[in-house]
Design a protein around this nucleic acid. Sequence first.
DNA 1: ATGCGTTGGTTACACGTGTCAATGACTCGT
DNA 2: ACGAGTCATTGACACGTGTAACCAACGCAT
Lengths: 338, 338
Amino acid sequence: MSQSSKSPEPPAPVPTSADVARRAGVSRATVSYVLNNAEAVRISEPTRRRVREAAEELGYVPHAAARSLRAGRTRIVLLPTPHVPIGPLYSTFLNELQWALRRLDYTVVQYGSLGLDGDEAVRAWAELRPVAVISLGEITLSAHNVATLKRAGARAVITMGPVGVPGAHALVMDQQEVGARAAAHLVERGRRRIGVVVPREEGLELFSAPRLAGARGVAGAEVEALPMAYSEESAAELAARWRGLHLDAAFAYNDEYAMLLMRALQDEGLRVPEDVAVIGADDLLIGRLLRPRLSTVRIEMPTGDHLASLVDHAVREPSQVTQHRDLMAAEAVHREST
Amino acid sequence: MSQSSKSPEPPAPVPTSADVARRAGVSRATVSYVLNNAEAVRISEPTRRRVREAAEELGYVPHAAARSLRAGRTRIVLLPTPHVPIGPLYSTFLNELQWALRRLDYTVVQYGSLGLDGDEAVRAWAELRPVAVISLGEITLSAHNVATLKRAGARAVITMGPVGVPGAHALVMDQQEVGARAAAHLVERGRRRIGVVVPREEGLELFSAPRLAGARGVAGAEVEALPMAYSEESAAELAARWRGLHLDAAFAYNDEYAMLLMRALQDEGLRVPEDVAVIGADDLLIGRLLRPRLSTVRIEMPTGDHLASLVDHAVREPSQVTQHRDLMAAEAVHREST
DNA sequence: ATGCGTTGGTTACACGTGTCAATGACTCGT
DNA sequence: ACGAGTCATTGACACGTGTAACCAACGCAT
């Protein structure tokens, strides 16, 4: 609509610091000094003003790539995110983390592995020369991978997977704990045969597999894996054949899956918790809205700000010693469904 | 633990293409040609092999910043995200979008406005020289802002807010429609005095305000705004004073808020839908689990792939004509709570 | 007049890459 | 034997920035 003039396409090249210099009648170096508030060099106040005005008038914006090329380092934090919504708990955590990093003046780059194998994915990451990498464990990186990243300028490599990697700071978040707490809770309350609901959705194995394994490891519990998709149909289908499974308890990947299953079981005429105990995970608020109220496993996640400042610290002080911290705490919360 | 040698700190500088050239015994130009599979120039097969091997052995990884500096353009898509979890519907949409963009070989950069005013935020964005910007409307950008971004190399500026911006491709997503549909549905069913639940959480006004306004615009409805936080306490508090409000219906920002309120109302002894009709929005799966089943407004969002390919198209063919497309369709879904 | 510190600025290089134009080495047709 | 034409490769420049080293002019005491 508001097409400019008839001018065909002189794309009005983006102004550089040289343009600013010309306009202010000074050298490019002076421009750089002024705009970066360099204190080591003395520039007279009138000149400073002229430069600032020229920059303003031209709408000058420095070129981040050129800048970090010259500097030899970036402020990029790479955050390879899984390509499936992991659940509300992690979504909010990631969101929080991003903002905390942004506040510390980092540039957060989302980068998926995109089906590449580990080495290729890491190479792709390294191209950006990130100053830090926070891997959630979508791809498990080898010691060699960590070395590659570090040589490419990464001063901190943080893995949040279930297992630490040599050379990387590890924030171990062992999802097994979640499964273990849930199963233990059920066993305590006299249940023996536990069905563990495993999402059919791809990409969630990263979290669901350890949770299942954790449940398996609890003494006194026989567990059976039950694949189920996140849909009413799938839940109904599972509920329909429930009686034949001879289970007295269910532990679902998630409160959402647990709610879905519990409703389907009730619709099937099964009583919760008398006939079957149901427990979820993540302690979502909505889990408390059903009746009976859903028992769950509360997970103590590190706060986004905390992790961000930890990253920041690691960047400033690239301590040789690779720290391992266990940041996960999980505890069963008894409500009414168990 | 596995501290390397006693070597103090020779940080083993990251290898450049010059290093590869030296090792392969060729010039840097050749390396570039080989590694980029340049077809215009013919390089003998043996040389190609030598170069590839040298690169492999050194673990050479090109420097993205240098590359895009030279190229004069990037593949960065800037995605300024609101700093509050907007809701499951949008979370999954954004996630989908990111992956779709990644598949098209774009680099997605999350960048928050960080409390800066519009101009400053846009300047910060422009530093990255993104090839495209997808604004969700967290900050409303002026025509001047769009011009700034375009001069900085953005070939597509896409706003998803409620209103188009001159110069930008606009994917209008008018949230008012949602409120209007909800209110109309309630009026149709004989309700007159509608309480609209508005989240207390900051940052959601972006979505909640238009939805409220949309409800206000419906003839035959008296609407009252009811602030409520996303917590059981807040919901209970609102429910406790419900009778005094003399309302016969509630429209909540979200299915989640609706569920929270509905449960609180029921706990207060009010019958749904007899005493009060409740309708939510976003058509979340869990909304169907409560009894009565929650009525809602289903929102037809563009798929992530669709938007991504639209971005891609806009980047390749920077059509002068700025398109406006209305991508939002909303319809009320009647279940049991209204 | 010479030496010297201070003020206010500039010149020149480096960062790592892509690519145009030029250059040898070889083959070939006459 | 000699220019014409391919083949394989290289030298040199540009992209936009930050900063160390240098320099002109000035004031001022020797």
